[in-house]
Measured scan of single mutants.
Amino acid sequence: DYYQTLGLARGASDEEIKRAYRRQALRYHPDKNKEPGAEEKFKEIAEAYDVLSDPRKREIFD
């Protein structure tokens, strides 16, 4: 679930989605986080943001 990936509730505003993405992206960015799995988590976060930030894709997902 993309909302869960970003730590959001369904119905989150565009601003909340953007804030959550930035927070998670900084936390799991491969240059900042060298833990195994961080790069994969970063890709999941980017995919979630891509879907939720686009109104058309978000409507299909919801």
Rank of each mutant, 00 (worst) to 15 (best):
E47A: 06
Q4I: 09
E44Q: 09
D54Q: 13
Q4G: 05
K41D: 04
K34V: 04
L52V: 04
K32R: 14
Y49R: 05
A46T: 15
E15G: 09
P30Y: 06
E15S: 11
K57Y: 02
R10H: 08
L8T: 07
Q4D: 01
A25K: 09
R58K: 06
S13A: 09
E47H: 07
D1C: 06
R22S: 14
Q4N: 14
L8G: 01
E47C: 05
A12H: 00
K34Q: 07
R22D: 09
L6Y: 00
R58T: 02
D1T: 07
I45E: 01
I17Q: 01
Y21M: 07
G37R: 12
D14I: 13
F42Q: 07
Y3I: 00
R56A: 12
D50M: 10
T5H: 15
A9N: 09
L8R: 00
D31C: 14
A38F: 10
E40N: 13
A9R: 09
D1Q: 09
R27F: 13
E44R: 12
K18I: 15
K57R: 13
D1E: 08
P36F: 12
V51L: 09
D62N: 07
K41R: 12
R23P: 02
D14N: 11
D14P: 08
E59R: 04
S13W: 00
Y2D: 01
A20G: 08
E35H: 14
A48L: 00
Y49N: 08
N33P: 11
H29V: 13
E15K: 07
T5V: 11
R10P: 08
D14Q: 13
K34M: 03
A48G: 02
P36R: 14
E40P: 08
Y28M: 09
K41F: 05
V51T: 15
L6S: 01
R58A: 02
E47D: 12
A48Y: 02
K32I: 03
F42M: 05
D50P: 01
R58L: 02
I17P: 00
R56C: 10
D31G: 13
A48I: 00
I45Q: 03
K18P: 00
A9Y: 02
F61Y: 14
Y28W: 08
Y28D: 06
D1N: 11
D31A: 15
P30C: 11
I60M: 11
K32E: 05
Y28E: 05
P30L: 11
L52A: 02
L52I: 04
Y3V: 00
A20Y: 02
R27G: 12
Q4M: 12
R58M: 03
A38P: 03
P55D: 05
E40G: 14
Y21T: 03
A9D: 04
K57S: 07
E59N: 02
K41M: 10
K18T: 12
A9M: 10
A9T: 06
A38L: 09
Q24I: 12
K57F: 00
D54Y: 03
A12G: 02
A25Q: 15
E47T: 11
D62V: 06
D62A: 10
A46Q: 04
D62E: 09
L26Y: 13
I60Y: 07
E44P: 07
P36Q: 14
A38T: 12
K41I: 06
I60P: 15
R10M: 07
D50R: 10
F42P: 03
L26T: 10
A25S: 08
E47Y: 11
G7Y: 02
A20F: 01
D31N: 13
Y21K: 04
D54M: 04
A20D: 00
E40H: 11
Y21R: 04
L6A: 00
Y21F: 12
P55Q: 08
K41Y: 06
L8K: 00
R22Q: 15
D54L: 02
K18S: 11
I17E: 00
E59Q: 04
Y3W: 07
Y21P: 05
Y2V: 00
E35K: 10
A9E: 06
D50G: 11
S53A: 10
L52H: 01
R23I: 15
R23F: 13
Q24C: 14
R56T: 15
A46D: 11
D14Y: 11
G11L: 06
E40C: 12
Q4V: 05
R22V: 14
E39I: 11
P55S: 10
R22P: 03
K32Y: 02
E44D: 12
E47G: 05
R58P: 04
R56I: 07
L52P: 01
Y21S: 03
L52R: 01
K57H: 09
I17N: 00
K32Q: 07
Y49C: 04
L26W: 11
H29D: 06
Y49E: 03
E35P: 04
D62S: 09
I60S: 15
K32W: 00
K34E: 15
Q24A: 09
A12D: 03
R10F: 09
H29F: 10
R58H: 03
A25I: 15
A12K: 01
K32N: 01
E16R: 03
A48N: 02
P30H: 05
R22C: 07
K43R: 00
Y49W: 14
R22W: 10
I60V: 14
T5N: 05
E40W: 12
